[in-house]
Amino acid sequence: MSARTPLSAIALVSPVQLMIGGIIFLPAIYVFWLSLNQSSFGQAASFVGFANYAKVLGDAYFWKALVNTVIVVAVVVHVELLLGLGMALFFASGVPFRPLLLAIVLAPYAVSEVSAVVMWRFLFEPDVGMMSRLLLSLGLPPIEWAVNPSHGLAMVSLLSIWLHLPFSFIILYAARLSIPSDLYEAAAIDGASPWTSFRRVTLPLLMPALLIAALFRYIFAFRLFSEVWLMTGGGPARSTEVMAVYLYLEAFRYNAFGPAAATGWLLVLASLLLALFYLRRLYKETFARA
């Protein structure tokens, strides 16, 4: 490897680098500057130091949104990985009409958040929705997603799991298929039970894929906006807001750009922190290969 980059390579990567640099990276840095200022539309910014952070961290709605986000992310990602793993193993054990079933599993990947909200609201419409009636006939209490905050968040979680399960499933299924079958034959010859061969063969070999899927899902679930916005709008009484909804409302409804920017930077930091171990490994790999 050379220390200098050929000019033609620079030319080839520059469109991509300019796009992500100019539209994502620089604005993200600028958000940090915004977070240290007090500003609004058409108003000159004035430097206030960390006052915006103090304001955000002193806001009960911020903490409510943070707690909601952490709960929803934890539920969504872990349930999704568990279901995805179960389905991957189920598929690997041989299923009838595999290509067709695979297409069916992938179908929710094509559905927009907006349409998914329509579907799940319809299923759980109080009194008349199909699931509401099913719960009623089983003697269970109805899901009151519009009035009860924890029910609202449960609906959001359900919807998110439904939308993103195809992603987790594909990652895990591809990883499962790449495990050579002679490992299982060898385990069977050694008299391993299905459970033992799962624990000793499948799980360790799937671990890298599980970690990758978990990381990506943590980071993307943390950005959750549309599902909440369209399902509950953060209500009733701001009780179901998540971080992105809180940020949006601060910026675009309350015109509090400083606190919104501070929230934004806290979001960025949280994402970086979540991905720290992955970035470190990637950094080492990237430069070790050189």
């Binding site: 990276f25 993200a28 958000v31 949006y248 934004g264 970035l279």
Partner: peptide, 20 residues
């Protein structure tokens, strides 16, 4: 710059709407 490509995916889209 390849590392930067991946690093950039960690920035949530809503954050950049503020300056944009």
């Amino acid at each position: 710059s390849a590392f930067f490509l991946i690093f950039i995916r960690l920035i949530p889209p809503i954050v950049i709407t503020l300056p944009l």
